Structure formats: C-alpha cells, structure tokens
Amino acid sequence: MWISPYKYILSLGHLCSDINQSILSAVLPFLIATYHYDYTTAAMLVTVSNVFGAFVQPFIGMLSDKKNKLLYMTLGVLLASGGMAVTGFISNFFGLWIVVIMSGIGVAMFHPQAAKLFNSVPSKNAKGKGMSIFSFGGKVGFTLGPVYTAFLMNLFGMKGTILFLIPGIVFGIVCSFFDKDFENLDVLEVEKKEEVKSEQNDDWSGFIKLCCVVFSRSILSNGISTFLAFYFIQQFSKSNSFASMLLSVFYGIGSITFLGGGIADCFGHRKMVRLSFCIFLPAIFIFTNTSHFVIALIMLIFMICGESLSYSPMVVLEQKYIPNHTGFASGITLGLVVSIGAALCPVLGYVSDAYGLNYAFIIMTIVCAIALACSMLLPNVEEK
C-alpha cells in the first residue's frame, strides 16, 4: 500500500505540535514543587489550555473545508511551542494561564488543517495506515515531551523551558520548503469532495455517537496523562524525575497506534475501536485496585494499548460518517469533544485532593465502561 511522502511531513508537524501537550503534563510536578500548587490548581492549567483551544478547532476546521492553508499549521505549532517556552519565566498563576492558553490555541490550529490535508493526500486502500502515520507522529511527540522536559529541568532548571521553542522552529523551517506542494492539494481536495458527494451522504447520527466515544476516551487520556505521574509518586513513593520518565514510557508504548490503522484497514475500523476498549477496561480496573508496583506497570501497558489503538480508526470513522465536512469533523472530534473531556480534569483533581488519587482512577474506570458501551452503538459504514 503506497503512502504519500507528504504524510510523513504532516506526521512531523504532529510530533512538533503534540510534544507541547505532553510537556505541559510533564512540567506540572516541577511547577508544583516550585510554586506549591495543589492538584486541582495544576490540573486547571491543563484544562484552560485544552478548553480555549477547543473552541478554535471547529472554526479552523470550517475554514479548512473552504481552502487548505499551510499557515494555520505552521503558525499553530509556533504558538504552541512559544507558549510552553515561557512557562519557566512566569511565577504568576494567571500569567501561566495566558501562556498555556496560547499554547493550547496553537495546538488547536494545527490539528483540523493537518487532518484535512491527510484526507486530501492519495493513499488508496490505506486510510487507516495513513492516519496511523499521522497519529504515530503525535505519539512520538507525546513520548519525547516528558524526556525532553526532565532533561531540561535537571540541566537548566525552570529557565530551560525556553528550549521548548526548538520543535516549532524546526517544523516552520521544514514547511517553508513545501508550501506550494501543500497548496496544490486544494485541487485534489475539490475533486475528491465532488466524488464523495455523489457516492455518500453525511451520517450525522453516527457522527454524534462517535463523538460520545471520543468524549469518553478524552477523559481517560487526559486524566491518565495528568495524574499518572502523581499516582506513582504517591502510591509507590517514586521520585518526580522517575514519574516524569514514566510518562514517556506511557506515550512511547502508545506508539503502537501505528499498528491500529493498518489492522483496522483489514478487519474494520469500528471493530478496532470496540476491541481497544475491551482491552482498556479490565486493565484500568486491575491497575486501580492493585498495590503491587509490577502488576500496575503491566496493567499500564495494556491500558496504553487500549487507549492508543482506538485513535486512528476513530479519525477515519469521523471522516466516513460526514465525508463532505472532513475539516469540521476533525475540528469537532480532535478539538471540541477532546477538550471538553479535558475540562473534567479539575473534577478529577478535586476528587484527588479530597479523597485520594485512587478515587480519580475509579471514576476513570467507570468512564472506560461507558466508552465501551458507546462503541457498541456505532453504526456500520461502508469501507472504501
């Protein structure tokens, strides 16, 4: 199955964008240690970053449905990196709000346009595999973020955050060489849109049901990425640096999302989504109820597999349910719905402060069961 080289460039952009999201989660323990924030306050930084970005993505998606603009992506990645780069120079909490909001908006500007371009680039009979390449870039970014953060914090202290600018600069330079190539994809998109309109109508009911699954998965992904480090620090007496490195393991193993799309191409994207939550649910249940470090690590691996394998198939399904509005679909599912899920992080933070981190993971276990139930309601869609 042939995959266009432009998809690898977009995957690089996904890396440079999403590394900032994992950097935010990884830097929280250092912010807590430096400024003595509680869990709820720290979680609020994740929330404001995602919520403000959420309301940008659908509008960017609608704009990208009209015309592809590489500027949305490059400026977005630069904003995302720039926001995180100044976090180490601001001690005022509301100042931190502003810069993480700027970073979140930057991430939001990247995703709808990138997903739209991915749908425009030809990849016959390899939709899932192509989207897996895109998601793999994001997973690599998430993986490198905590490692990069721990390295800079240990070497330079909080002032080392200025080097978070590097990924944004790298992607900006790469994109400068391919601006005209990506603009030419407008022609392919127009031709593809006319073809799809004549073959398939939008299934908004199926899309809404998929949004429910994405919403539940978002709560799980954001909850785990935000509180996983704290959980191992509190439950198993691990150091801040170890817990930060564990986040990299979490995101690194999550790179098996590269396999999810290819498998889904063979057996069906809807089946892959269901299977992923069938793996996720028992794993997070055991993880939450064990006091053994090794068992927790093993279950964490299964949790990562369940969380990661669902990503690419869900992105493909969203574009199949409403094929005439792929940019808007990406803005909603990759942006608004995901960010609404992230908005519940302070609730989990409040529960953690009041009752302990274990209760936050109990809530996430219930959410995982809801995600599995919702995935069973997804309607079938013809695989093309």
Rank of each mutant, 00 (worst) to 15 (best):
H325N: 15
V316I: 12
V351G: 05
L300V: 00
F118V: 08
H269W: 11
F215I: 05
L185D: 07
P167Q: 03
F110L: 11
V170A: 04
I173R: 09
V196N: 08
T365S: 15
S103R: 04
S312C: 06
F171V: 15
V121Q: 07
L259F: 14
Y311F: 12
L372C: 12
L24P: 01
L96Q: 08
L79Y: 04
T290M: 09
F178H: 11
S330H: 01
Y6V: 00
Y35R: 12
M303V: 09
M102A: 14
S123F: 05
I169R: 06
G130D: 10
G160H: 06
G141W: 02
F134Q: 13
S132Q: 02
M364V: 09
L152Q: 06
P323L: 01
L377G: 06
L152N: 05
A54F: 04
W2K: 15
L259M: 14
N92E: 15
P323K: 01
I370R: 04
Q319K: 12
P167M: 08
V77I: 15
Y39E: 14
I23K: 06
N380V: 13
N154Y: 10
F267T: 13
L372E: 04
F207A: 08
T41K: 14
S198F: 04
N50Q: 10
A85R: 04
P58E: 00
Q57V: 01
L144A: 15
D353M: 15
